[in-house]
Amino acid sequence: MNRDLIDQVLSARDTRRAVATVTSIAGGVQRIVPRDAVAGDPLEEALSEGFRFDKSGVHALEGEEYFVHIHNPALKLVVVGAVHIAQSLIPMARAAGYDVMVIDPRGAFATGERFPDVTLHDEWPDEVLSEGDLDARTALVALTHDPKIDDPALRMALDSECFYIGALGSRRTQASRMERLKASGALQDALARIHGPIGLDIGARGAPEIAISIMAEMTRALRLGE
């Protein structure tokens, strides 16, 4: 890979644009294909399936082998609530390749001391998030327990393509949350996208184990679409 190609792939990553590199395995010739330029490409089918399923692989074309390497935008985790569970969840998410952003309008919570190396926003979720922030490679977890903060974030997530939406709270909290969101106009089908109580039921105790259960549920949603 020459320097120009490396820089193009890195810049696509920085700007959250999906690209693929195609390498002719025998000849070593390489090119880059942006996702929005797939139509009409000799490897169109391999490319579009690859982007869709986030799957790289070798494809044959006219007796030659090509390696199609999919570079989808990095996974992103939006954490609403700079709470104790977030402190456990964030390092795990980063290890799994997520870029993390934390939102909490309560200034005392979202401090750099409690959350080093993370993008912090001490504003309201609907002030920080725009439509483009919640794309199909993004997960959102609402962890504050405070409807004034969680609900606007969940409403935005429901209107987006994000692949996972989780909300912390007991079954009872969850039921009243659903009632509020329904009253505010969310559809029943859309509400079913919210995972709550959040996390796989693995009997988690304490923040680190709850974070593991959330990571597991997010991973299942990402890889199995469940």
Binding site: I6, L10, A74, R94, G97
Partner: peptide, 14 residues
């Protein structure tokens, strides 16, 4: 932003 291996390779080249 999470560092990528390709980003690190670019750094090594630099």
């Amino acid at each position: 932003m999470t560092e990528t291996l390709l980003g690190q390779a670019a750094q090594w080249l630099d």
